[in-house]
Design a binder for these strands. Structure first.
Length: 1103
RNA sequence: GGGCCUGUAGCUCAGGUGGUUAGAGCGCUACACUGAUAAUGUAGAGGUCCGUGGUUCGAGUCCACGCAGGCCCA
C-alpha cells in the first residue's frame, strides 16, 4: 500500500485528470443514485442564453450554484439539477438581423417569418458547445443531457396554460402604454432601438410657456413649459413638485400686454423676469417699454397648489373631472422650465403614470369603430376634432423644406394661436436632444400602444408578504432592492411586437368584443375544429404543431356569435418564459405532475443581482399570483465581476477575462477558490489573476505540501490508515489539539454552508490548513514522523494527520471539487468501502466530545509566548540556535500556570530555551498594572469614566496589591466615593524589574539572556551540526548515508564544544566518527560566530 | 432624479450587540531554519478607519448630511 507521491502540483492537470475520472466512472450519476430515496433538495437553474460565449462572471455564479448543490449532496439530500436554455427574445433577433443584414421591417418581406424564426432557432444554440465545455471544465455539475429549452413546444404549451390561468382569474388585460413610436415608419420602437448611436440628436424646436388660467380667477395663471407644443391640445393636468417653492407674480403678458398674475417655481423666476424690472411702477408702464414691471405677490409650497383646478387650454375635446387639476409629480425639477409640468396622458410615460395614479382621464376621441384613440393618428396627423389643426402633421413627416421662409411647423402655428389668445407667456427656439427613428431619421413620438398586461398590482400585498419569507443573501437585496421594487409595483407589460418568442394565445374578433384565451394544444384543436365547421379554417392542425409564429397567426377561430377571430399579434415578454420554468421544465400540468409537486418551490437559486427585476421577479410573481407560494426559499444574488482596477469588463475595452484560458492555466479549483474566498459573492469581485496564483500557492500549495510530507513518511513506514483506528487521538497533547481544532472547524464550516456563506467556509478551511495544520501541527511534530520505528505514538501522529487531511478534503470539496477529490483518493487509495470519489461520501460530523476549548486556549498561549520570546531574541540579536537557560513568566492565577505548564515542552522546543520559571504573586517582584473594566464601569459611572480611568491608571503597586487581597478599592472622583469590586478591575503583569520583558494580551515574558559557557558550547555544537548538514547536502548525500568528520583543533572553544556534545553532533549528522586533530587534510573552512573552523566530511562506505 | 451596495495598510479583505495598542494575507525590509527544501518560520516598517457634523464618559462601529465608485430603475 502506497500513498501517491506527487512532485509538482499542477492544478490545471488535476482538473483534466479528475474530469476524465468522473466521466469514466459516471460519478455525477453515482452521487444521485447514492441518495436515491433520500429527501430532495431542489435547485432551479436560471437558464442562460447560448447565443453568446460565456464570460468569467458566469464562472462565479455557477460556482456558487455548484457549491450548495454539492454540499447538500454530501449532507444526504438528493439534489437533481436540470439544466436549461433561454432561447427567445430580442438579443437573438437582433443578432440574426445583423447576420442577415436585414431590419425588422424586412421580416415578412425579404424573408418569411418562417425562415426568419428558423434562423433564430439555429442562432440561439450557436455557442451551446462552448457553454457545455465550460460547464464541464469548471466542474459545474448540472444535467446537460436533458435540459429544458424555452422554444420547445411542450415548454411553450405550459406557458399557454399559465397565461390562461391568469386570464381566467381576470388578471390578463389589454391596455396601453406610452412607447416610442415612429409615425414615418408606422412602428413602435424598442428602447434598444432608441439607444442606438445617433438616435438622439440635437434639434431646434419651438418651446412655449403656456398660461393655464386658474379656475374662478380673473387673470391668474399657472405657467407651464413644453418643448412639444403639439401635445398641448391633449393636456389633461399639470404637475408640481411637492417640495418645490412657488411664487405668484403680478406682471403683464408680453404679447398682449394684458395684466396677469402667474405662478411658477421660485427658483425659476430669474429665467423669465428681468431683475431690473422688479417692482417698477405698474401705472407708468407703456406697451413700448422694454422692461415689463413685475412683483411677487404671494408664495406657495408645492403641496398648496396640489388639487387646484384650471381651465382647459385648448378646449377641443371636453373632459370630465378630475381633469385639469394640479397633481404632484416626483419627476418635476427646477432645472429648466417653470417648475410646473404640462401633462398629456396620451403622449408621455410620466404623464400617463401620474394620470392613472390620480384617475385623471386622458384626451381621447372615438374612431370609426367607436374605440378610444388619441388626438394624433398613427400617421402623425391631428384628428378632425382638433378643428384648427385637423389633418396637420405634428412634426415634419412629409419631407417639407424647413428652410423655405413660408414653412411653418405645426408647433409654430399653435404658438401663434396661443399668443393671440393671451395663453402664451413666452415662445422661443430651444435646442435640445430628441430621439429620432434610426430608419427614417424622423422624430419619434411618445404614443399610446396597445399592450397586454398582467395585473400584478392586484397582488401587491401578497407579493410583498411572500417576499418577506424568502432568505435573501444579501438581506438588503431582498428587503431593499427587491422589496422597494414590489412596493412600487406597476402592472407587468407582457407584450412584445416581435417574431421569435412565445405567441400570446389570445384570439379576438375585429371589433374586440369577443375573445378567447387558449390554454393547451388540445384546446386549440377543439377550437380549430369549430372554426373548420364555421368555414374559417380548411383543416385541423397536426399533432406536432409548432406554436411559434407564423403558424399560430394562420389560425382563425370562431367566436360564440359566429364571428371570425384573429390572434392578437403580440409575443409575450421572454421573462415570462424563464419565470415559468418551475412548471414548464416538467411540462406541467400535462405531464410529470408528481415530479413537479416534489420539486416546488425551489430550496435554492442563485443568479446575478441584475436579475432582481428579471428572473427573480418573474419567478416570484407567477408563483405568488397563480400558486399562492414562493418560487424559491433561499436565493443568493451575486455581484458583478470587474477587472482588477474596478472597471466593468467589456470585450470592447479588451479587459475581459477569458474563462477558458484562466481555467486552462490555473485550473478550475484555484479559480473557484479565489473567487469564493476573496470576497462574498454578493460583493463585486475585482478580478485579479494574481489572486488565483496566490490561492494556488498559499492554500493548495500548503495543503499539497502537508500531504506530501504525510505520504513520504507514511510510505516509508507502511502506515495503513485503516488499521488500528482506536484511541488514536487521545495520546498526545498536540494530537488532541489538532483534532479539537478540526472538530471546531467542521462545525464552523457546516454552519457557514448551511447559512449560504461560502466565503466564511472557505476562509475557515484555509486558516486551518495554513496556520493550524501546516504551520503549527506539522512543524512541531516533524520529529515524531521521522524518528524510530512505527510505534504507537507514531501511528497516532499519522492517524491524526490523515484524519485532518481527509476531513479538510471533504469540507473543501464543494468549492474545489477536482483537487479535493484527488487528495481524497490519494489518501484513501480507493478504500475498502469502494468509494470512488469524495463526492460520494457523507459530510463530516463535528464530534463535540473531541472539542477541548481549554486545550485550544493552551495552544494559543504557547503560540503567544513563543512569539514573545522570538521577539525578545531578536531585540538582543540572539539566534534561535543559541540555547538560553530560562524564561520567566509571571502568573497571577493558578489556571494560567497550569495551562502554560501543559504546553511547556512545546514552547521550550520551539524557542530553544532550557526551562520556564513561574513568578507568582507572592514573589513581590512583578510590576502590575490595573485597567478599568470599561464595559461594566462605563454603564455604572458614565460621565465620571474619564477621570476614573485616569485614577485607575495611576494606581501604585501597593494599591493594586491591596485590591488583590481585599477585592475592593475605594476611590474619590469629583468628590464622590466610589467602591470598586473584584470584577471592576483587570490586573495584568507588566514588568519584572531588571529583566527585558515583552507583553501582549496580558501575558508577560522575561528572557534570561545570560549565556554560560556550557550554553555557548551547546550553541556552537548546534552551529556545527548546521554546517555539517550543509556540507552533507553539498556532497549530495542521502539521508541514510553515514559520515566521518574530522575537525581541526585550532580553536579551544570549538574543541571543548565537541567534547561536551559529541553524541548529539553524531546523532544529528549521522556521523560514525568525529575526530578532533591537529591539522586536517582536504579541509573546508566554515565560520561560526566569526570563528573559522577547518574540517573535513567524508562518506563512510558501508562494509 | 430614486432605490440598493461599497469605501479600513501600497493591494485584497476581517473587524457580533459602541469599551481604550484597529487585525490577517500578499507585497516590502531584516533575520532565522535547512530531515516538508523550487518549501518553511519569526520579526519590523506601513493606518487623518472617505469627509463633515451629531449622539455618548467613550465611535471604525450608531444617526444626519455630503463625496467617490458600482448596479438597477427613471
Amino acid at each position: 500500500m502506497k500513498y501517491r507521491e506527487n512532485k509538482n502540483l499542477n492544478l490545471a492537470q488535476v482538473g483534466v485528470d479528475m474530469l476524465s475520472h468522473w466521466k469514466q466512472n459516471n460519478i455525477f450519476e453515482a452521487t444521485l443514485k447514492n441518495r436515491e430515496g433520500h429527501e430532495a433538495y431542489t435547485f432551479y437553474e436560471g437558464p442562460p442564453s447560448a447565443n453568446g460565449t460565456p464570460g468569467i462572471h458566469h464562472v462565479i455564479s455557477r460556482a456558487v450554484k455548484d457549491i450548495f448543490c454539492r454540499y447538500k449532496t454530501l449532507k444526504g439530500y438528493k439534489v437533481e439539477r436540470k439544466g436549461g436554455w433561454d432561447t427567445h427574445g430580442l438579443p437573438v433577433e437582433l443578432q440574426v438581423e445583423k447576420q442577415l443584414g436585414i431590419t425588422k421591417e424586412d421580416i415578412g418581406k425579404k424573408i418569411s417569418v418562417e425562415q426568419y424564426n428558423q434562423k433564430c432557432r439555429e442562432a440561439v444554440m450557436q455557442f451551446k458547445g462552448e457553454w457545455d465545455d465550460l460547464t464541464e471544465k469548471m466542474g459545474y455539475w448540472v444535467d446537460l443531457d436533458d435540459p429544458y429549452i424555452t422554444f420547445d413546444r411542450k415548454y411553450m404549451e405550459t406557458l399557454w396554460y399559465l397565461l390562461k390561468k391568469f386570464y381566467d382569474k381576470g388578471l390578463l388585460y389589454k391596455g396601453y402604454t406610452i412607447q416610442p413610436y415612429s409615425p414615418a415608419a408606422g412602428t413602435g420602437l424598442s428602447s434598444h432601438e432608441l439607444n442606438q448611436p445617433g438616435a438622439y440628436r440635437d434639434v431646434k424646436d419651438t418651446s412655449l410657456v403656456a398660461q393655464f388660467k386658474i379656475k374662478g380667477t380673473e387673470n391668474d395663471y399657472f405657467l407651464a413649459w413644453t418643448t412639444t407644443p403639439w401635445t398641448l391640445p391633449a393636456n389633461n393636468s399639470l404637475a408640481v413638485g411637492e417640495h418645490i417653492n412657488y411664487v405668484k407674480i403680478k406682471t403683464f403678458n408680453p404679447y398682449t400686454f394684458i395684466p396677469v398674475q402667474v405662478i411658477l417655481a421660485k427658483d425659476r423666476v430669474a429665467s423669465f423676469f428681468d431683475g431690473k424690472a422688479e417692482n417698477l411702477s405698474f401705472d407708468e408702464y407703456k406697451q413700448s417699454d422694454k422692461l415689463i414691471p413685475w412683483t411677487i405677490v404671494a408664495e406657495y409650497k408645492g403641496t398648496d397648489l396640489v388639487g387646484m383646478e384650471y381651465e382647459q387650454l385648448l378646449p377641443y375635446v371636453a373632459l370630465p373631472a378630475p381633469a385639469f387639476t394640479v397633481l404632484a409629480g416626483d419627476f418635476v425639477s427646477t432645472e429648466d422650465g417653470t417648475g410646473i409640468v404640462h401633462l398629456a396622458m396620451t403622449f408621455g410615460a410620466d404623464d400617463h403614470r401620474v394620470s392613472v395614479k390620480n384617475n385623471v382621464p386622458g384626451v381621447l376621441v372615438k374612431d370609426e369603430n367607436g374605440n378610444d384613440v388619441p388626438i394624433v393618428d398613427k400617421q402623425g396627423r391631428f384628428v378632425k376634432e382638433i378643428t384648427d389643426f385637423a389633418g396637420m402633421y405634428v412634426k415634419n413627416y412629409t419631407g417639407e423644406d424647413e428652410n423655405d421662409p413660408n414653412y411653418k411647423p405645426t408647433d409654430v402655428l399653435i404658438a401663434i394661436k396661443l399668443k393671440e389668445d393671451n395663453k402664451a407667456f413666452k415662445v422661443e427656439k430651444y435646442v435640445h436632444s430628441y430621439p429620432h427613428c434610426w430608419r427614417t431619421d424622423k422624430p419619434v413620438l411618445y404614443y399610446p400602444m396597445d399592450s397586454w398586461f398582467i395585473k400584478a398590482t392586484a397582488y401587491k400585498d401578497k407579493l410583498v408578504a411572500f417576499n418577506k419569507t424568502i432568505n435573501w443573501k444579501p438581506e438588503s437585496t431582498g428587503s431593499g432592492r427587491f422589496g422597494n421594487w414590489l412596493e412600487n409595483l406597476v402592472d407587468w407589460n407582457l407584450s412584445r411586437s416581435r417574431f421569435w418568442g412565445t405567441p400570446l394565445p389570445i384570439w379576438r374578433t375585429d371589433d374586440g368584443k369577443e375573445e378567447i384565451c387558449i390554454g393547451s394544444i388540445a384546446e386549440l384543436k377543439e377550437e380549430v375544429a369549430k372554426a373548420i365547421e364555421a368555414g374559417y379554417m380548411q383543416e385541423q392542425i397536426p399533432d406536432d404543431f409548432d406554436l411559434h409564429r407564423p403558424y399560430v397567426d394562420n389560425i382563425f377561430l370562431v367566436s360564440p356569435s359566429g364571428e371570425k377571430m384573429l390572434r392578437e399579434p403580440d409575443l409575450v415578454d421572454v421573462w415570462f418564459d424563464s419565470g415559468s420554468m418551475p412548471y414548464a421544465q416538467w411540462h406541467y400540468p400535462f405531464e410529470n405532475e408528481e415530479v413537479f409537486k416534489k420539486k416546488y418551490p425551489a430550496d435554492f437559486i442563485a443568479e446575478g443581482v441584475d436579475q432582481t427585476r428579471g428572473w427573480f421577479f418573474t419567478l416570484h410573481t407567477i408563483a405568488v399570483m397563480l400558486f399562492d407560494s414562493v418560487a424559491f426559499k433561499n436565493v443568493i444574488a451575486n455581484g458583478l465581476v470587474l477587472d482588477k482596477d474596478g472597471n466593468k469588463m467589456s470585450k470592447r475595452l479588451g479587459n475581459a477575462i477569458d474563462p477558458f484560458k484562466t481555467i486552462a492555466e490555473h485550473g478550475p479549483d484555484a479559480t473557484r477558490w479565489y473567487m469564493i474566498s476573496n470576497s462574498n459573492p454578493w460583493d463585486n469581485l475585482k478580478f485579479d489573476v494574481n489572486g488565483i496564483i496566490e490561492a494556488q500557492r498559499r492554500f493548495f500549495g500548503t495543503l499539497q505540501n502537508t500531504y506530501s510530507f504525510f505520504a513520504l513518511y507514511a510510505n516509508l513506514d507502511n502506515f495503513d490508515w485503516q488499521e488500528d483506528p482506536s484511541n488514536y487521538y487521545t495520546q498526545t497533547e498536540s494530537d488532541r489539539w489538532i483534532i479539537s481544532k478540526l472538530n471546531s472547524l467542521i462545525a464552523q464550516v457546516d454552519s457557514a454552508y448551511d447559512e449560504y456563506e461560502p466565503t466564511r467556509a472557505a476562509r475557515a478551511i484555509q486558516n486551518f490548513v495554513i496556520d493550524d495544520l501546516s504551520n503549527w501541527y506539522v512543524r512541531l511534530n516533524r520529529k515524531r514522523f521521522w524518528k524510530g520505528e512505527l510505534n504507537a505514538d507514531k501511528k497516532t501522529a499519522y492517524k491524526s494527520l490523515h484524519t485532518c487531511l481527509v476531513t479538510v478534503a471533504q469540507l473543501a470539496s464543494p468549492i474545489a471539487p477536482f483537487y479535493m477529490d484527488k487528495l481524497y483518493l490519494d489518501l484513501t487509495l480507493e478504500d475498502k468501502k469502494g468509494s470512488k470519489s469524495i463526492h460520494l461520501t457523507d459530510f463530516p460530523k463535528s464530534d463535540t466530545a473531541l472539542v477541548d476549548k481549554d486545550l485550544e486556549q493552551q495552544m494559543d498561549l504557547a503560540q503567544n509566548i513563543s512569539s514573545l520570546v522570538h521577539s525578545l531574541r531578536k531585540q538582543h540579536k540572539l539566534k534561535v540556535r543559541q540555547p538560553l537557560s530560562r524564561i520567566l513568566i509571571p502568573v497571577l492565577d493558578a489556571k494560567t500556570k497550569t495551562q502554560i505548564q501543559a504546553v511547556e515542552d512545546i514552547i521550550l522546543n520551539e524557542v530553544n530555551i532550557k526551562s520556564i520559571e513561574y513568578v507568582d504573586n507572592t514573589s513581590g517582584i512583578i510590576v502590575k498594572k490595573a485597567k478599568p473594566n470599561f464595559r461594566k464601569l462605563g454603564q455604572q459611572y458614565g460621565q465620571m469614566m474619564k477621570e476614573l480611568s485616569q485614577q485607575i491608571g495611576k494606581l501604585d503597586q501597593k494599591a493594586i496589591a491591596g485590591f488583590e487581597t481585599s477585592g475592593a478599592l475605594e476611590l474619590e472622583v469629583k468628590g464622590q466615593k466610589i467602591t470598586l469590586g473584584p470584577d471592576d478591575l483587570m490586573i495584568q503583569s507588566e514588568d519584572i524589574p531588571g529583566w527585558t520583558v515583552a507583553t501582549e494580551g496580558g501575558i508577560t515574558v522575561a528572557l534570561d539572556i545570560h549565556i554560560s559557557e556550557e550554553l555557548q558550547r551547546e550553541g556552537i555544537a548546534r552551529d556545527l551540526v548546521n554546517r555539517i548538514q550543509n556540507l552533507r547536502k553539498e556532497l549530495g548525500l542521502e539521508v541514510q548515508d553515514k559520515i566521518k568528520v574530522v575537525v581541526d583543533d585550532a580553536n579551544s572553544i570549538v574543541t571543548e564544544s565537541i567534547q561536551h556534545n559529541r553524541d548529539y553532533i553524531c546523532v544529528e549528522t549521522q556521523a560514525l566518527q568525529l575526530e578532533v586533530v591537529n591539522g586536517v587534510e582536504n579541509y573546508k573552512e566554515i565560520e561560526i560566530d566569526n570563528i573559522v573552523v577547518k574540517l573535513n566530511v567524508a562518506v563512510v562506505k558501508p562494509n
